[in-house]
Amino acid sequence: MVNPTFRITGLDAFYGNKHVLKNINIDILPNAVTALIGPSGCGKSTFIRSLNRINDLILTFRREGKVCYHNQDIYAKDVDVVELRRRVGMVFQKPNPFPKSIYDNIAYCLKVHGIKDKDKIDATVESSLKKAALWDEVKNSLRQNALTLSGGQQQRLCIARTLAVEPEVILFDEPCSSLDPISTAKIEELIHQLKQSYTLIIVTHNMQQAARVSDFAGFFLLGELIEFDKTDKIFTAPKDKRTEDYITGRFG
């Protein structure tokens, strides 16, 4: 048995008095894609946003229980949150490049980590864009404002930007929900390739997408993790009636 990248035990989360995650226990394995499915408002986004502590920005957020990353509780007092976020990257639902050039969007990551060497920055910009399968489309317009790109290109730029930080884990929060089918296919293809080198967690509303890209799948409902297993098991032989109802489209 490989050591899990994340081991979450007894995680409860609240926004004010609203109990949004209830006693979540889950192991996230390295170099695999874990998909989290479930209807809107079931807590999936809150869950992955707890893994890089980006939910700390929401003042009413509160949690109990343990989130261990490589056996280290990330909510412990002495944890360097900045370092945690460097190793656990995130791609958001809405493509959100900075209003800067394509080049500067990626150079931003290096700048904040104190890298000033121009050659190194050039090389990272190129390699990140290549890994995100965007290089061929933008290599002649790196100085163009990133906001002039199409939605799908913007989202791949955001992925490239995340890759430039060289994380170990990448969290995807419904990365395709605002994209057309062709862009979605490109992102899925990309996720498939990234799996070789990264641990990926993807929140999605799209069941086919979960079935296509993931190795493990978890079904959330009203803040509870109903079922978690290998993806083919979840989709072919779910143990829980509610999972079955959801994936066959009887509710949700």
Partner: peptide, 26 residues
């Protein structure tokens, strides 16, 4: 936009770097 801060922090920038490079220029 709030998302500028979110993205910057998610890329491993500190809060001050986020203010300095991402929020203030805009």
């Amino acid at each position: 936009p709030f998302s500028f801060r979110e993205v910057s922090l998610s890329l491993g920038a500190s809060r001050w770097q986020t203010v300095r490079y991402s929020v203030l220029p805009n």
